[in-house]
Design a protein around this nucleic acid. Sequence first.
DNA 1: GATGAATGAGCGTTCATTCAT
DNA 2: TATGAATGAACGCTCATTCAT
Lengths: 176, 176, 176, 176
Amino acid sequence: MDTALELFAENGYHSTSISKIAQKAGISKGLTYNYFESKTDILNEIMDQGFNEIYDNLDINHDGILSEDEFIYFIKQNFKLIRDNMQHWKLFFSLMLQPKVSAAFAQKYEEKVGPILNLFFGFVQSSGSKNPESDFMAISSMLEGAFLYCVAAPDMFPLEKLEEAVIQSCFKILKG
Amino acid sequence: MDTALELFAENGYHSTSISKIAQKAGISKGLTYNYFESKTDILNEIMDQGFNEIYDNLDINHDGILSEDEFIYFIKQNFKLIRDNMQHWKLFFSLMLQPKVSAAFAQKYEEKVGPILNLFFGFVQSSGSKNPESDFMAISSMLEGAFLYCVAAPDMFPLEKLEEAVIQSCFKILKG
Amino acid sequence: MDTALELFAENGYHSTSISKIAQKAGISKGLTYNYFESKTDILNEIMDQGFNEIYDNLDINHDGILSEDEFIYFIKQNFKLIRDNMQHWKLFFSLMLQPKVSAAFAQKYEEKVGPILNLFFGFVQSSGSKNPESDFMAISSMLEGAFLYCVAAPDMFPLEKLEEAVIQSCFKILKG
Amino acid sequence: MDTALELFAENGYHSTSISKIAQKAGISKGLTYNYFESKTDILNEIMDQGFNEIYDNLDINHDGILSEDEFIYFIKQNFKLIRDNMQHWKLFFSLMLQPKVSAAFAQKYEEKVGPILNLFFGFVQSSGSKNPESDFMAISSMLEGAFLYCVAAPDMFPLEKLEEAVIQSCFKILKG
DNA sequence: GATGAATGAGCGTTCATTCAT
DNA sequence: TATGAATGAACGCTCATTCAT
């Protein structure tokens, strides 16, 4: 699966053949089908793995409330997770743009990301924003965009500075 | 080409076969090769078309300076262009994440987008920002993220409100 | 037809497309089919042209008898014809080896070449050979081989010397 | 490979499709590519096989000198090899006439055949010929032509008589 | 558990041929 | 007479998948 993820992220799902995965993983092509039902299945399991890894490490607490420090920690952790799981994210972003590749993706994404967005929206509301819906959109966009830069053009901005800029701008938006 | 763009955007470049394009366009597979040299050629021509369409309509003026009104107009125009060329943008985002698909993309992208970013950075600098580099990153990310939402999850946020939120937040960041 | 011959001889019948022929001849692909019924038809007409050109120039006299001088002249003329119609010969040799390409070839070849061989055999018989059948085979082979060298490896032997060697050896065989 | 050789020799390289080879061999088209990398690869391996088979059986001794008996044996062996590997020879002759089919052919041919021709020329020189260059050309042509008759028109001359005629004529030429 | 030979559908592409103009 | 848009079958080749071992 690690091998598959690597190749999917690097070359794309369709350009990666089972042969190449098996070869790089040092096993036979046939054995792949003892572990996975199909190529799509590999993708699905990678997605599950990725979602879990990200979600497990993001879920700060379950009281459903983020303090300001937790919000900052949340964003930093998110940047860290991207750096540590670049390939998963790269794959996720590309799947997001081609929903027909995996019908399962949209559903799983909503399941996992929905609660996070709610937690997130709650923080925006409780932070004194005058227009929470608007600020939530702006901040979500900024984060999404920053993550996209991390993944697709990591050389464009220095990641630590990008992280810092995003956090500060979040508060400018909220307090603004 | 319109048919090809539609399918590329919807299903991705690799998942779209020449057969499907020809079939959907109502012509024979062979005829495709009277118009295009190869599948890659189709992609390249679509990219050129898209870049030109977007770039031609974005280029506000050539004095290299954006006033505040022009900046706002610039962003609004950008959102409009996304709505009007959703498929091109969808394709572009997906190519951005799979650079191996088309070596030509990265180069063309840089040629077209580079000057815009410079124009853009100039505005941030001249707008009284205390930390132009940082604000530029935040604003670029926000725009990129907003565009990604438009393209990949257009139902998530109402696009007009997203647009409004982004513009306002830009100024919060700059003045903040 | 000249264009087609050139391309057939250079690249082979199957590697030469109607498109290339038409393009090189400066006409449209469709027009080709006003002159020829099919690609095979082009080949057949080229073959006819070739056979006629060669045969017309070879037929020394019709009394059916070759004198020694005529025999020498005959061979020299043959070498000359090869040099002047290299492409026809190249094509002929290649067709000889792939009889299925053109069912017509074998028949036409026999029609044209048969009488020549008879004329030829007559000379061997009348030249004092002790074993005409045997000498005829040897001389025919030598000529055929020399022609093949001319066509397929013209740089291997200097053609004039090859010609001289062949003629002399013919007489050595006959008189030997 | 045997199937491929058969079809290549019979119909020519370009007229023989992978489908036909696979079908005649009783396997699927895809399986072909487990054994060979490409159609060209099939041709190359057939050529190697052919060259080796012929060369291995031709190399009389390595002292680089042919006695008269060895020379006769050499020619007889050559005729035998043609009879036994008719298809290889047929393929080789056709490749000789369409050098663009396989760039590898010319090179391999030279490697294998060059030394033989040298050995051969050495015999002509040491045999008392008054004009070795000339006689070498004549004899080479005669052999080449006889081989071509064997391969392209085996019904034209009885092969044993052709063989005998060629050998005798060689000596007539040399002693001439 | 593990292999890799085998398949068959599909790919991008070419090309001889047709036909409305 | 001349064009070139259009077709459809075939090409060389790839690959997800199966299965006997």
